[in-house]
Structures are given as C-alpha cells and as structure tokens.
C-alpha cells in the first residue's frame, strides 16, 4: 500500500469531516483559520487521491439485509485476483480480502434470512469459477466494528450493494 503525503491541515480536515460530512466549507475554513478556497482545494485533492469519500452510514434497521456473515473461501490460487473481484461484484458483499492462510479469500456479506444466505453462499459465491469451498460463519454479536475506515476504489463502490 502506498504512503500518502498528508500534512496537519489534511488530518484536521479529515477529522472534522469524519464527524459530519455536511458541514460547510465556510464553517471549516473559519474553524481552522484558513480561507475557503484552501478548504475546497484540499477536499478535492483528498477525494481525487482516493483517500477520503463522503457517504452515509446507516443503522442496520434501514437495511432489509441486517445480518452479517463471514465467508472463508478457498479459491484457485492462479486466478485469485479475478475470483476476488468477481465476488466483490456480488450484491450484498461488502468486503473482500485476498488472504494467505487456511483460506485465500475472505468475504463479509449482509443477509436478511437463511434463504438469502443460502442463495448467496451456494448460489452466488460457490458458482464463481475457481471457488472450491466456502465456509460460512454467522455473526451472532458485533463487539467492535470500524466502518469509517474503508478501501476507496476506482469504481467507487461505496454506494449500496
């Protein structure tokens, strides 16, 4: 992963916007004692460099699919990147990582009920060419979650899924 160049002002900006993305450039500028153009320019740069993105985080109640499952997936090592991308394109798959360990792809999925989960695991994920095994763990309790730190991608896939 690359190491971005961020100065104190960038970090202050990110801190403010992480609390509330709808605060105006004018308010940020006056709080930080810089001019509005600087704020606008910095935000634009941070977005262009895919370091920040503005989105809405919602309570689980908003989602029809309000349960989380982890899928530990064994996939053909020769094609693992393509396989991981194919899995990431499946709706309701929120996170996909290529791993080195007892499994080589890990996916975090949202589901509504067990039928839904079955369709996702057996129907969609196991159907991806090169996937040989899927082991599903259902989350029964979330003790800690960090939804403010993400991977910002080209496609910007932050929206729904």
């Amino acid at each position: 992963m690359s190491r971005p160049e961020l100065d104190d002002l960038d970090r202050q900006l990110i801190g403010i916007l992480a609390q509330d993305a709808r605060v105006s450039n004018r308010k940020i500028a006056s709080d930080l004692g810089v001019n509005e153009g600087t704020v606008r320019g910095r935000i634009k740069r941070l977005q262009q460099e895919k370091l920040i993105a503005f989105t809405a985080l919602t309570g689980m109640k908003l989602e029809k699919a309000a349960n989380i499952a982890f899928m530990a997936i064994q996939a053909d090592t020769a094609h693992v990147r393509r396989i991981a991308r194919d899995i990431a394109d499946i709706p309701l798959v929120k996170a996909v990582m290529i791993m080195l360990g007892p499994f080589n792809v890990m996916a975090t999925c949202l589901y509504h009920d067990l039928d839904d989960l079955h369709r996702l695991a057996s129907g969609r994920i196991l159907e991806v060419e090169g996937v040989t095994h899927v082991e599903t763990s259902l989350v029964v309790k979330t003790v800690k979650i960090s939804n403010r730190v993400v991977r910002i991608t080209d496609a910007d896939t932050l929206s729904q899924g």
């Binding site: 989602e63 309000a66 899995i87 996909v96 979330t142 979650i145 991608t153």
Partner: peptide, 21 residues
C-alpha cells in the same frame, strides 16, 4: 490469515452512533 490485498472494504451499515474519528 494474512491480508494480501483489500479488494473491497466498505461496511456502510452498523452502529452509527460511534463518534470515534
């Protein structure tokens, strides 16, 4: 299991009350 690449990571649901930066 060691993460080699994050293809996607965007959990946009969950507890929203956390004010942690």
């Amino acid at each position: 299991a060691v993460g080699l690449d994050i293809v996607r990571y965007a959990l946009d649901t969950g507890p929203v009350d956390s004010r942690s930066a």
